[in-house]
Amino acid sequence: MKSSLRRTLAIALRQFYLMRGSPTRLLPMFAWVAVDVLLWGFITRYLNQVSKAGFDFVPALLGAVLMWDFFSRVMQGVTTAFLEDVWSRNFLNLFATPLRIGEYLGGLVLTSVLGSLVGLAVMLLLASGMFGFSFFDYGLLLLPFLLVLFCFGIALGIAASAVVLRFGPASEWLVWPIPALLSPFVGVFYPLSTLPAWMQAIGHCLPPSYVFEGMRALVLQQSFAPQQLILGATLALLQILLACWFFARVHTGALRSGLIARYSAESVS
């Protein structure tokens, strides 16, 4: 096996061991998804009852919530895997090995892929079993929708990890609210046109906006502009590259300042 792939797998295997050994790590993969499915499932059911228009809120609202949950799982899959190394003060051991930054990030992404797929499966089972929702209502477009959200989740997860690497373990609290902070700008529940101009400008820089706009167009008008999704996908891929560059820059800076060697001290000054 190629050594580079083997090192990448080692990073993911570590997370597998941790999850296997600790149910408290497994629970968040299901628990929040289940809570969201229940909450929004019943809200959409209620809205379907009270609205006379015959409009089906399930694919528009519950679908949006589930997609946003998927994005959050992907992002937190990367950051949680990274934080495991922060919590166990493992940087000195890790970065003194032949491990390259690309391999390390690849391992974090692989962990996130596996974790978020499990979360996605649970999400789909619950949503279809309890509320008759199916992601396949979106047809083949489901795949590019999920792919764009996945790529943006990876980009944001890597960027957030770089921030924690730069500012130390205490900056972990910055990571958790990122999805909640972004959600008003990407129009999870409403069209971007609802927002004031400055919020729209930010929204247009964020790939999920294109997914949710596309999803709404598909559900409400049965039409879809593929160029919008292509733009979202291009943005997401660019942002992954930017995030990797940012992480590598922070890592190089940490090597120069001595932060990696004395990470738990949070500062080298």
Partner: peptide, 15 residues
């Protein structure tokens, strides 16, 4: 939070 064998396996893969 990893066993002796798990740690040795992971670092063995890294090296």
């Amino acid at each position: 939070n990893l066993s002796v064998r798990q740690n040795l396996r992971l670092f063995g893969m890294l090296y």
